[in-house]
Nucleic acid binder design. Structure first.
Lengths: 373, 373
DNA sequence: CTGTTAGCGCTTTCAC
DNA sequence: GTGAAAGCGCTAACAG
């Protein structure tokens, strides 16, 4: 195969300067249409692809976006990444994966993140399920580095952020159980230091309140999102005196719901006959457990997609901004709209997937709230 | 936060040339220990991290490695990527994810791959589960671009390649069933155009032969690795006349085994009482299905790790090579060992996880064959 | 052992 | 509209 072409080769072949080729490649407006076309034809013929590395250096910001993922053992991570990849595939950007593995990469905290910033390989960072690293991500944001968080955040802050509408999703799940006649509905929470856990809990409370049912603290137990903690929670709930036990459980994650199923199986509790069960997440395996799990589906792929889009728009916006900073009399300086720097926080609607585990017979109810703050 | 430092800043602070700083950063041997230490101290203090982009450009090969993944819907992909990320985390390399989504990126074929090569962002490519793209990956390899394939290949070729020992794994699974007394053991194959499927089939045959049992073609049906095709295969097998039905099934993937379980449940076939079942892959959910699935576990993370290591060593080796190509009288030219260019094909051992679905009562038998060709 | 000198391939002023 | 020139931040080749 022929030697890799450079922009210089193309310029030569087209009989123009490198600058012009560059202009065409970057879709600048000021190029003679016929010249543009000729250059594009040659680029096509030669299969020329400009060097991302060199372009990044010269442009002073790369077309790479970093994606920070926690352990891949969370089942939604692949889905989200998939959405991210899909959105990025539509752009000239590429995706650099930074995974916070337990061992490698220091203590999975600031080090990695500082390194990401410092090596300035990527032009922005998408942080998926930031648990502890959240605070570091927030710091980056405060330094003005483009950052978007997906699906969680520890602390309230003004970091751009995508998530499902956890509260509404939970509300609908519990409301569904209430409609089915349940009155003693327990909730297995996620870790309460996570914002999403608190939101789901809020939704749970709100639904009960709407039915005029007071929240019974003995029916609310904290879990860790994992199956095991779901089992333990079930254990706790079923140690309650006879009449105080729940007739339904709303678990804040599907995995914890699986734990409940396992516990129920061991103890001869029939689902849904003796206990109705609803999970949260809508991971694919929930359709295949016995009994199939009713659950609140989060639009993970869509969250990934939206996150990527938002980040890229931030990156490009940041660049426009920067371009105008020099005080010299830019000709079109007035073109710069103040471009509201407002907080971007996007909530995506969840949908309730009704399956056998809650004892209802409907097929699928879909909510449709979608709000952008 | 202070402006990002450049290598020039460090050189200035240390009172040496940029070249010297560069030498220290790149661990070249020829630097005065005290100078080295001083530079390192300053680098540390200033939190200096060199620009990967600039370094890549100057060095003419980046420290990025591309990872080509198929749909994330294959459950092992995250595991493999996780291993890859872990291994890469130990090196100065970073991981660029190229995902062949169904929609984006053209037809998921040559285009992406050519683009990867042309944009020369990455120094090498790790291709995970190459299905159709395999031939393109092979092409890259023929052009001399460093490439490693993980866990499959369509055509025999000399592309460096990591996989589980599919044949041996299958052998052990079937042997286990034979030991349990089964004589009519069916096999649900993966797509036969995949090498791994053929290997698993080979293992199946070999085990039967070792027991003096002829392979009965009516007991071998081809599936597509997915649950649904497992169900269909079960359907086919149970449509056989009474006496010809299998008493055990060895499915070439866990997902297909799940399909068998679903079919069995629907048709009142008890597992393991009426039918023993063994899967292949050892994905984590197999421990939690009912009944828990006996399966051949592939060391996915390890495969990812080994693949990354192999690729990086190839990249660095290629560079040493290239450095010697210029015919000018390199002083140490004799240092270049011919460095056997031999085919690198690594098989990793699988392990048989014995659970309830096969009707045995052992806990776990582990095989230990590991060969490097 | 260390400094100097050229670039890597592209983008970006700034003239024309 | 287009070209020439000057780098981006780093590494590599060659002297010393």
């Amino acid at each position: 195969m022929a030697r890799k072409r450079t922009i210089g080769d193309i310029a030569l072949l087209a009989g123009v300067s490198k600058a012009t080729v560059s202009r065409v490649l970057n879709q600048k407006p000021d190029v003679d249409p016929s010249t543009r076309e000729r250059i594009l034809r040659i680029v096509e013929e030669e299969g020329f692809v400009p060097s991302l590395t060199a372009a990044g250096l010269a442009r002073r910001h790369s077309h790479l976006i970093g994606v920070l993922v926690p352990s891949f053992t969370w089942p939604m991570v692949p889905d989200i990444v998939c959405g991210v990849a899909e959105a990025i595939g539509l752009t000239p950007y590429e995706l650099v994966l930074y995974s916070i593995n337990d061992k490698t990469r220091a203590d999975g905290k600031g080090d990695v993140i500082d390194h990401i910033l410092a090596s300035d390989l990527v032009a922005g960072l998408l942080s998926i399920l930031p648990g502890l690293p959240a605070k570091h991500v927030i710091r980056l944001h405060q330094y003005g580095f483009p950052v978007v968080m997906i699906d969680d955040r520890e602390l309230p802050s003004d970091v751009p952020w995508i998530s499902a509408d956890n509260q509404q999703g939970a509300y609908e799940a519990v409301y569904h159980l209430l409609k089915l006649g349940h009155r003693r509905i327990a909730h297995i929470q996620g870790p309460v230091d996570l914002y999403c856990s608190r939101q789901r809990y809020q939704g749970y409370c709100r639904a009960l309140e709407d039915y005029g049912i007071p929240v019974d603290p003995t029916l609310v137990v904290e879990g860790l999102f994992r199956r095991k903690s779901g089992m333990e929670a079930a254990q706790k709930l079923f140690s309650l005196p006879q009449g105080q036990r729940p007739t339904a459980i709303f678990a804040a994650s599907d995995d914890m719901a699986y734990g409940v199923i396992a516990y129920a199986e061991e103890h001869g509790i029939r689902i849904p006959d003796d206990l109705a069960l609803v999970g949260f997440d809508g991971i694919s395996s929930s359709a295949h457990v016995r009994p199939p799990l009713t659950t609140v589906k989060q639009p993970f792929q869509e969250m990934g997609r939206q996150g990527a889009k938002l980040l890229i728009s931030m990156i490009e916006h940041a660049h426009r901004q920067r371009a105008y900073i020099p005080p010299g009399a830019g000709k079109h300086a007035t073109l710069l709209q103040p471009e509201d720097e407002q907080v971007q926080q996007i909530h995506l609607a969840t949908s309730l997937l009704v399956r056998a585990s809650c004892g209802a017979r409907q097929s699928q109810a879909v909510s449709s709230i979608e709000q952008v703050t």
